[in-house]
Amino acid sequence: MSSPTIIDTHLHLIYRDRLSYPWLGAVAALDRDARYERYAEEARRCGVGGALHMEVDVAEPDIEAESRNVEDLAIEGATLLRGAISACRPESPDFPAFLERALGNPFIKGFRRILHNVPDGLSERPIFRENVRRLSGTGRPFDLCVRPDQLDRALALIDACPDVLFVLDHCGAQSVTASLAPVWRARIADVARRPNVCAKISGVVAYLDAKAWTLADLRPYVEPVIERFGWDRVVWGSDWPVCTLTASLSIWLAATHALTRGASVDERDRLFAGNARRLWRIEG
């Protein structure tokens, strides 16, 4: 049985000599460059044939420069790079002008505003929702990066923007704890009922015990998400280099293969590549 081609929908690249990352100083394990060449060497060996760069929460003045940096890398020969998911600030009155510039560049495939480390009420501001609604009909999804206890706020944003495509990062299980697991299970079912939301099988491994995790620790989060969303609304992402906090890219990918061993070739192809091609209009 042949393995599907893989599109990594959640790659982070860090170039500290070109961009500013204010949060890195507080995360010693990640406070280093994460350059394309190091990623590509391992990714190619794993069967990755394409990747989308996910914004890395650079300093706000560097948001557009980050996307340009990734595009420049692609032009210079970083052949796995198929596009960039740009950071954005929907709470800003400058968002419409920013969006107009971004929509003029086909390399920018989508947008994200990290919500797990900002005040909970940010996404409830009228200007935030009004600006996210501007993505309707653009073919550019909005990634949601929230903690399990924030899934109700994510639902509120989704319902306020029914014509926008959303992608729920990391199974919506970022930093999940035993006490939050019941909340996550209930909320993830609610999110999956919204037809304009896809789920990203990514990131979960980074929040496990680096020395003691097993496949059994991933199963309660990955399998229900695939079951709830269905094979047409799930995509795969490495979350490299964040995944290296507890596993290499190779190990995380092997774990995903193990978790989906019972799926058909067609179902696995949709998870690992087909859905990403459709959702972000990726060619090749």
Rank of each mutant, 00 (worst) to 15 (best):
A212Q: 15
L253Q: 05
I7C: 06
L249P: 05
R261L: 07
P61D: 13
D159K: 13
Y36G: 05
S179K: 15
R38A: 13
W231Y: 14
D159E: 13
A51N: 07
A59L: 13
D209Q: 05
R147G: 00
R140L: 01
D239N: 14
G284C: 10
H257V: 03
E66P: 01
I75L: 13
L122H: 04
W231L: 10
C243R: 00
E91V: 00
R38E: 14
I251S: 14
A84T: 15
R68F: 03
L115D: 01
A40T: 09
G284M: 09
L115M: 15
V146G: 01
D159L: 01
A97K: 05
R89G: 01
V197H: 08
V164K: 14
R129V: 10
P224K: 08
F142I: 05
G203C: 00
H170K: 14
S86T: 14
S179R: 15
V164C: 07
E124V: 02
A173S: 15
L245Y: 03
A247E: 00
R32V: 04
N131R: 08
G25C: 08
R270H: 09
G47T: 14
A263R: 14
E42G: 00
H170L: 10
V225M: 04
F128D: 00
R281L: 01
S238H: 12
E267A: 10
I85Q: 04
R233F: 03
R125L: 13
D94E: 15
E267F: 03
G230N: 05
L80C: 03
N196I: 04
C171V: 15
S2V: 06
L253T: 02
G104I: 09
L271T: 10
A28K: 15
T246Y: 02
